[in-house]
Design a binder for these strands. Structure first.
Length: 99
DNA sequence: GCCATGGCTAGTA
DNA sequence: GCCATGGCTAGTA
């Protein structure tokens, strides 16, 4: 795994349960606001979904976004953590976590 | 080096 | 469009 991916995963592991962040915000925190696509790629290769909660990363428009094991699973995990998911969207105003 | 590959996004139409 | 990877091909040494 590259250094970039390592740093992304480290940041993601800081997101508290009940909160979410976006690919865009992560890219910004990484120092390159345009690297959101690369961030998504890094999460897609998450080696440990238990320690690294990549399900807490959603799209900047609130859409739930993708997930290795299916978006329904992602929605379920978020719901269990107290994040309301309606129509495959979350309220960023309410749950957004910033670095 | 070059190219394809995505869990994306901003900005047109 | 943009970006970090991985896989593969030249083209040198």
């Amino acid at each position: 795994m590259g250094r970039f991916q390592f740093r992304v995963l480290k940041l993601v592991s800081e997101i508290p349960s009940g909160k979410v962040t976006t690919y865009k915000e992560l890219a910004r925190a990484m120092g390159n606001p345009r690297a959101c696509r690369a961030v998504a790629g890094a999460l897609a290769k998450n080696p440990d979904p238990v320690k690294i909660p990549c399900h807490r990363v959603v799209r900047s428009d609130g859409q739930i976004g993708g997930y290795k094991l299916g978006i329904s699973r992602k929605a379920k995990l978020l719901t269990e953590e107290g994040v309301t998911v309606r129509n495959k969207k979350v309220d960023l105003e309410r749950y957004m976590y910033r670095f």
